[in-house]
Amino acid sequence: MEKMKLKLLYSDLRPELEMIEKELEQAVDSESLLLNDASLHLLQAGGKRIRPVFVLLAGKFGDYNIDVMKRVAVPLELIHMASLVHDDVIDDSEIRRGQPTVKAQWNNSVAMYTGDFILARALEQITEIESPRVHEILSKTLIEVCRGEIIQIKDKYKLDQNLRDYFRRIKRKTALLISSSCELGALVSGTDEKTAAHLRRFGYFIGMSFQIIDDILDFTSTDEELGKPAGSDFIQGNITLPILCARKDPEIYTMLKANLNRDLSNEERLTVVRTIRNSSAIEEAKAMSERYLEKALRELSFLPKGQAVKTMRKIAFFIGKRNF
């Protein structure tokens, strides 16, 4: 339902997004029936398509040509998909977006090869673009995203990490790819450098806000809304902002420490979730997300007024207030 609302926000991009959707389907076409099935399974599970949307919107500030824009928008979504299918192996996740994951439907190996295949398709497509700058940004982003995930695993179950570690991690994990989507969209449409820099920063701030909200929702949503058990981050040892805020209370700290890195019964899991949910941590984390949102909106104020800015602002507000 909420996803529908988000899609309504960028309804003026509907024809282009329908085209992108078809291109995505074609991109994962394979002579291997199994790879084809696994990739389509992933694709049809849906998603917000936030990265292609930002590529297209950023392109509106330059010489917008959908045939050029799609050559960046499609690979960026493919890169995101490839990382999701591998993330599900990393987290041993059975369900994503309410659907069985590729690893659950088939197995870990098929998930690994599906991710490799999709990433290779993305690189095969984006290398049609000759601009070295595009590839410098994208290759750096890919490496940083991986480093972020490696650090996340290294920092798992470490309740005593600091806020800076968390922000650096989510920057790499989420914000960079959204930021790059905006910057690459700007670059391939030939915008000036100043506009591209504002768009890049907008993407970065909105990405940070987006991830913080995601981390909050892991505690405030129901299992049904999330399509996975609430509190999954805590169960998997991912120390997110709500946990970092909540641990300031000595009682909660002791409870978190006692429940970290052990098998929790359903009741114990729900107790952790309720404790975080009822603490001041959620409001604190929301305030931090809000600050990033404000920074994102400030970047938009430097851009030429028009429909693209309006849509970006609406998406930014929506991300800040979303509850899915």
């Binding site: 199994l34 790879l35 098929v110 490799d116 295949f117 290398t127 049609e128 000759e130």
Partner: peptide, 22 residues
């Protein structure tokens, strides 16, 4: 960049063949 593309194409083929064992 041309070599990136060439290797990406090769990775696609390798991934397809690896999956074929399943």
């Amino acid at each position: 960049i041309a070599m990136v593309q060439r290797l990406a194409t090769a990775i696609i083929q390798v991934s397809e063949k690896k999956t074929s064992f399943f």
